[in-house]
């Protein structure tokens, strides 16, 4: 792989957004994802290659998170660096030379107002090349089903932090499945386990953002 393209992926992994960003400490003053992507595109490098390098960087940091080697701040910064890259790649997405992998409709279920985990998953999946429709927090089942009607080929992601909203998540799964039995639903959040997820009829469960990306990749390949 081209050195510059590889470097952009490294910036994403380390959460180095741009030159001005003080994070991470040992990359202070260096060009970040923003500057390097601009340089790469100006030098005529392939947008798809840049995207793939960044996705690999996201996978590396996502796996470290899964092993508890890094925590939420590192993930947030990586997602922000990824965003800086995709801003530059937008024209290529719009022209169709880079294709979205699919659409994920995501939201925190009714009765739950927590969004840190949902946002993190959302940014990671978006960074992995998916189109994400984020419905926000306290999302009623009808809002999910309305969104599915507009995106019939989507996958749905449900988030909950509170133990008291597991029931609300379960209800949301039932209502979606009643109208759209074919739609795949992945659930996640601190109080959940694979057992709880299976029990409520969800198609998948992930304990961290990278797990969600892996699951989405798997179902896309088997679809």
């Amino acid at each position: 792989m081209n050195e510059l393209v590889e470097k952009i992926g490294h910036c994403v992994e380390r959460g180095k957004i741009n030159k001005a960003s003080p994070f991470p400490g040992n990359m202070k003053g260096q060009d970040g994802a923003d500057e390097l992507t601009r340089q790469a595109l100006e030098a005529g490098m392939d947008a798809e290659a840049i995207l793939q390098s960044c996705i690999a960087g996201m996978v590396r940091i996502g796996e470290k998170f899964g092993r508890n080697e890094v925590f939420v701040p590192e993930m947030l910064m990586a997602a922000k660096a990824m965003k800086a890259v995709t801003e530059h790649l937008k024209p290529f997405f719009q022209s169709g030379s880079v294709q979205a992998k699919g659409t994920l409709i995501i939201g925190t279920v009714a009765g739950d107002l927590h969004d840190i985990g949902k946002n993190l998953v959302s940014m990671f999946i978006e960074g992995n090349g998916w189109n994400v429709v984020d419905l926000g927090v306290d999302v009623k089942p009808e809002k999910f089903t309305d969104a599915i009607r507009k995106n019939p080929r989507c996958v749905v992601g449900l988030s909950a932090l509170l133990t008291t909203t597991i029931a609300s998540m379960s209800k949301t799964v039932r209502e979606i499945k009643a109208l759209f039995p074919e739609i795949k639903i992945i659930v996640g959040g601190a109080p959940l386990t694979m057992e709880i997820a299976t029990g409520m009829g969800a198609s998948g469960y992930a304990r961290d953002p990278q797990g969600a990306v892996t699951w989405l990749t798997d179902i896309k390949e088997t679809a």
């Binding site: 092993r67 508890n68 890094v70 925590f71 939420v72 701040p73 590192e74 840190i116």
Partner: peptide, 12 residues
């Protein structure tokens, strides 16, 4: 508790 058996907040 982390995978390595240490205690950390979600922010590390």
């Amino acid at each position: 508790k982390t995978a390595a058996g240490e205690y950390r907040t979600m922010m590390g």
